[in-house]
Computed example of a mutant assay.
Amino acid sequence: MIRTLMINGNGQASIGGEELVHDWRNDASSRLWLDLTSEGLEQHQTERQVLLGLGCHALAIEDAQRDRHPPKLEVFDDHVFILYRGIARFDSQLHHKSQSISFFISERLLITYHPLPAESINRLMAGHGGIHLQRCPPQLALRIMHTSAGMYLDHVLAFEDQLSDLEDALHDQGTDALMRQLMGYRSRLVKLRRIFNYHQSITDELKSSDLALFDQPDLGLDHTLNDLHDRFERLASLVSMFYDICGDLIDGYLAVTSHQLNNTMRVLTVITAIFIPLGFLAGLYGMNFEYIPELKFHNGYFILLGTMATLAVGLLAWFRKLRWL
């Protein structure tokens, strides 16, 4: 599916389909945003021809049409290619489905290519996309990524409340179910941290490079780029912090569980240590021999019980002195 937004030389905005490409070609002062949503593998060749016809490099198109590819920045003679990891689905539990959004950016043209609907693109297409496009296509591309990063940030901040509640529940009464939940969070945070680190490296590269497309301080691109970089940096730091918190909670739960197990084993060890000598005496005088000297003692039974009681009480007192009880 192809959607287009064109700003002509008079600053008038038009929204339509592929027919606006012809108008854009005939108006050298116009700017065009073409949003292309992939319709599946069977349409890849058709989409490839559309992108080639608009001057996109063949290698960049191959990267854009791959199912999985890490975010990247690549510079060609007449345009810049940015592969961004956008949002297809996200919630406060960090369950997310990401998708690659490809940006082909030139002086008069911005092409966005993605396999699934993208909320950040839909917002700008229906909102202030024309204002940013009128300034320049790189500004619009940065604003799309900025909007997407804001959506990421909203969900990550919402997760902070979930993590706080989980921390309280774990301290009150830790369970294996809470541990499994923490492990799941930690796994998702690793994936998000990898994505945000990629994005941060893209903005680092854009800031440090001398690309003419993005080196337009009179249009305020430097401020937009710095804002985008700060947002990615905050996302990366938040995700890393939450990852560390999850790790600390897991380690704390394991330490408490190990301490409880040690206490249980200590009690069982004390009980065993008390009953071993008592069992020895009972076994000794329970042997079936006719001649055992003590068997003829008139008060032998009571003496043996007294000895066993003394041993038990003495061991208990000793263990309490050693702070084992």
Rank of each mutant, 00 (worst) to 15 (best):
K97H: 06
I61C: 05
P70E: 00
Q49D: 13
E62A: 06
Q93W: 03
N122R: 09
Q65F: 09
V80W: 02
S92H: 05
A28L: 15
L73S: 07
R31H: 15
F76S: 09
I87R: 08
V80E: 02
L109V: 13
Q49N: 13
Q45M: 13
P71E: 00
L41I: 11
L34K: 12
H114R: 03
L59F: 06
P70L: 03
T37A: 07
H95C: 07
S30C: 10
G86F: 01
R89M: 00
R25S: 14
R89D: 07
D77V: 10
L20P: 04
Y113I: 04
E119L: 07
E42N: 12
I87T: 08
T46R: 09
I87E: 05
T46G: 08
L34M: 15
L116W: 05
I101Y: 02
H95E: 10
H57F: 11
F76N: 08
H79I: 05
T46L: 10
D23W: 13
I121P: 02
L51D: 01
I61R: 02
D35P: 02
C56Y: 01
S92P: 00
P70G: 01
L32A: 11
S100W: 04
L59T: 07
I61M: 06
I101M: 06
F104M: 13
A88S: 08
F103E: 13
D91L: 00
D63M: 05
V80T: 11
Y113F: 14
R85E: 09
F104Y: 12
Y113M: 08
R89Y: 03
D35E: 07
A28I: 15
S106D: 15
F103I: 14
H114F: 04
F81C: 06
L73K: 08
D78Q: 14
G55S: 10
A64Y: 02
R89K: 00
L94F: 00
A126V: 06
S98C: 09
S100Y: 05
G40L: 07
D78T: 12
I61S: 03
H44C: 12
H96I: 04
Q93T: 00
L52W: 03
A118H: 05
L94K: 00
G40M: 05
L116A: 06
R89F: 01
E42T: 13
N26H: 15
V50W: 10
T112W: 02
L51E: 03
H57V: 08
S98H: 11
P115E: 06
H95I: 05
F76E: 09
